[in-house]
């Protein structure tokens, strides 16, 4: 019977494995998988937090898709912000990373400065930008005024409020710069030297070597960036309350208001489920596109 001790050894080992993973298994079930199913369930109910949830079939979805234009507005706002901020962050982050990579021994200083806003606490940063965005005394319009430009109302304007948020998010671009910079330093200089010998100029180098070599990092940051930006909430809650003209009512703010202000938990869950059904396929699609491209 030589096998028995081994199998019991493995059994014991297996048990230890489960034991060690237990906290996460509990967390996964209680805080992620369970809530996802619960959200789907709640979305078929009406629930005011006081009386028990009542099943109403697809009514919430019917209302959402046929009667409630404000959701589509919020969805539009969210996508505007998501793509605006992520696109600019990735593009500018890449450019700055390349610039920093060429900055030689001063790189460290510049990196320190660009990264600093990333560690600043969010709420004070928002207060600060509320001041900067003030249409008459704010630094931004004062600066534009130097060039004779009559600055917009920023947070008080339905057209400029989202660009204002995107601009503010760019202050935190240091994170992405640092990530790209680390990626750039992993690219061997020989590649560039060889290409330069072939007569490629700097811009060609950027597109032909830098971007392809960094593709996995760029892709990863686009996907995580989009998912992160889809959760934009605090900015709108603190700085604009969703206005003016609902121009900054993002989906999460809408969910918060519906669930915790109007206490329509069922309807709010339906919105969160729809958002889930949009974002998860989007992520999967992005992964597919990436894989396909990577094959070439």
């Amino acid at each position: 019977m030589p096998k028995k001790p081994k199998s019991s050894f493995w059994k014991r080992k297996s048990l230890t494995g489960y034991l060690f993973a237990t906290p996460w298994i509990i967390g996964l079930v209680c805080f992620i998988i369970g809530p996802i199913f619960a959200s789907f369930f709640l979305s078929f109910t009406t629930y005011d937090g006081i009386n028990p949830p009542k099943l109403i079939g697809f009514m919430n979805y019917k209302i959402l898709f046929t009667l409630d234009p404000s959701f589509w507005k919020a969805l539009g706002n969210t996508f505007y912000y998501m793509f605006g901020s992520v696109f600019l962050k990735v593009l500018l982050g890449l450019i700055f990373a390349v610039l920093l990579n060429n900055a030689g021994k001063f790189m460290g200083i510049f990196r320190t400065i660009f990264f600093l806003p990333v560690v600043l606490p969010a709420i004070p940063v928002m207060f600060l930008w509320m001041m900067l965005f003030n249409p008459s005394s704010g630094l931004l319009n004062q600066f534009l005024g130097v060039f004779g430009i009559n600055g917009p109302l920023w947070l008080n304007s339905p057209t400029w409020s989202k660009p204002a948020f995107i601009l503010m998010s760019l202050w935190g671009i240091g994170g992405i710069i640092v990530i790209f910079l680390a990626g750039l330093q992993g690219i061997s200089t020989e590649l560039y030297e060889a290409a330069e010998l072939d007569g490629a100029n700097k811009i060609q180098l950027f597109w032909k070597i830098t971007v392809p070599m960094l593709r996995p990092v760029i892709f990863f940051n686009i996907v995580t960036g989009l998912i992160g930006a889809s959760q934009v909430f605090t900015e709108a809650y603190v700085m604009t309350g969703g206005g003016p003209l609902e121009s900054t009512t993002f989906v999460n703010l809408m969910i918060y208001k519906l669930a915790f202000k109007d206490i329509q938990m069922g309807y709010a869950s339906a919105i969160s489920v729809v958002m889930f059904m949009i974002l998860v396929p989007l992520t999967v699609l992005l992964f597919r596109i990436y894989r396909k491209q990577a094959e070439f």
């Binding site: 805080f31 996802i36 619960a38 959200s39 998912i227 669930a259 869950s269 969160s272 958002m275």
Partner: peptide, 11 residues
């Protein structure tokens, strides 16, 4: 990669 808004209410 799960959009966390779906977790808020049940949690």
């Amino acid at each position: 990669f799960i959009p966390s808004q779906v977790l808020i209410i049940p949690t």
